[in-house]
Nucleic acid binder design. Sequence first.
DNA 1: TCAAACCGTCACATAGGTGTGAAGGTCAAC
DNA 2: GTTGACCTTCACACCTATGTGACGGTTTGA
Lengths: 134, 134
Amino acid sequence: MRIGELAERTGTSRRLLRYYEEQELIVPDRSPNGYRDYDERLVDRVLQIRGLLEAGLPTRMIKRILPCLTIPGILYCPEDATPEMIAALEDERDRMSERISFLIRNRDAITGYITAAQSLDEADSTDAKAASAS
Amino acid sequence: MRIGELAERTGTSRRLLRYYEEQELIVPDRSPNGYRDYDERLVDRVLQIRGLLEAGLPTRMIKRILPCLTIPGILYCPEDATPEMIAALEDERDRMSERISFLIRNRDAITGYITAAQSLDEADSTDAKAASAS
DNA sequence: TCAAACCGTCACATAGGTGTGAAGGTCAAC
DNA sequence: GTTGACCTTCACACCTATGTGACGGTTTGA
């Protein structure tokens, strides 16, 4: 498919699809006329990229971990898994774990704030009712 | 304390501390000589800011929710918690939850990849041993 | 054959979070 | 007093993920 269709199907601008290519996250073929020609599987790939970006990972990191993540979830273990690469991945994994706990802590703090604010809000409206009833 | 000490204690550059001030995330006093004078409690405050930034929240949002998050974790709920703000926070919280699950999924995928690669590696070295033993 | 709707590259723009350095003030210690 | 370590403001610069637009080629359908 061409870039327009991929853009539409992934909710990603053409500009960004070209950017991801520039960052070597995706590598489309080229039609004889020079148009990019995207494989069907790249739809999921792009969605995965968007997800990782949304999760806060920079493109460089994504580029490194992407080859290891096949479409459904895991595996396809290439034989070129050098010890260096594994070590790098372990680093990534650890950074991700840190990031996860960071996010969880802060999300819970926000959740706490929300519930506190809501209960305070309810108390307010109860007050208001009481006041208007009196 | 002055900016240097705060920078050191929070692992944050002076530049960034000034930036956070510019964004009205922290408001230090000023000594008669014009030097910034930071309260002890701002150490935790800065760490909290870093955490929220790391979590992907923009400074504007942090500015809004920061007054609501006291040092230990939560609470002290100001009365100006508008419904709009709460809604925005709920959005943020949901986005964070999405990020979290995405990160967890991908981290687990990476973990799976690592263990697969390692067991493959062990098999290789077993092969090698067998080969050298034969 | 002409217009519309694609596509290509190039390049400048922006926003947020940072780095860095210049030019200068303050202060403590020697 | 002078040096060195600190502080100030200002400002330019970077990176990353994006938007946007110019300018030109290609495809498709009326």
